[in-house]
Design a protein around this nucleic acid. Structure first.
Length: 213
DNA sequence: CATGGGATTGACT
DNA sequence: GTCAATCCCATGC
């Protein structure tokens, strides 16, 4: 797959976070469409880059279009796309995917058994939860810390443009999840009503279309 | 060099 | 709803 160019990422991080919705992430034969993202920027305290350039945040301040990969809670691996021009510490956390290729491989990596005798409803539920979280999708894709700072245009992990059927997805915007600072910023994006997202939409503006996961 | 805190998940009450 | 797992790294002495 041809990856998005560096120029795509060299823009305001909120723009990049919104436009990454509907794009495809691939690692080897495993791939999925991005359905949920969050933006982080060095100007706000929830961002790792808030503390400035350190060995950890070097990637975030580096060239756009690279992968920023880090370990969270000692267990989970998180995948971000570095955004904004070099010198600005910004990135987009990929939070959920709709699986599209290499599904058996991804299920195996997640420790799930692909039983063909299971009821269709149960198999669908399993598919919806295969990549429904930032730690889950890196496990399913096989992304590791070794991919930190690698190019998302030409490296092992790639992000390609929106394909047919995803030209103009309905995108909702809300507050980010799992942080304790700058919780009020509406820097989370997700496909409206999508069942592959990490958490049901916090329907603050009424009971919108987003049903449970 | 010691310490503390997570951009989470899954198991359990 | 609660809670532990477990490691990287920023910070402070």
């Amino acid at each position: 797959m041809r990856g998005l160019s560096e120029d795509f990422y060299a823009r305001p991080v909120l723009e990049v976070a919104r436009e990454l919705i509907g794009c495809t992430v691939a690692h080897g034969e495993a791939a999925g469409v991005i359905v949920e993202t969050e933006a982080y920027h060095d100007s706000e305290p929830a961002s790792h880059a808030f503390v400035g350039v350190t060995p950890r945040t070097r990637t975030l301040f580096g060239p756009p279009g690279r992968a920023y990969v880090y370990r969270s809670y000692g267990i989970h691996t998180m995948l971000n796309a570095v955004a904004e021009p070099e010198g600005v510490g910004a990135g987009v956390l990929i939070r959920a995917l709709e699986p599209v290729a290499g599904i058996e491989l991804m299920a195996a990596r997640r420790g799930l058994t692909q039983s063909s005798s299971a009821q269709p409803a149960s198999r669908l539920a399993q598919l919806e939860q295969l990549c429904s979280g930032p730690g889950k999708l890196t496990q399913a894709l096989g992304v590791s810390l070794a991919q930190n700072a690698s190019s998302l245009s030409s490296g092992p992990v790639r992000i390609g443009p929106r394909v047919r059927g995803w030209e103009d997805p309905p995108v909702l915007q809300g507050t980010r999840i799992g942080i304790s600072q700058a919780v009020e910023l509406p820097w989370r994006f997700a496909v409206a009503g999508c069942r592959y997202v990490s958490r049901p939409w916090p329907s603050a503006s009424g009971r919108g279309g987003a049903a449970g996961r």
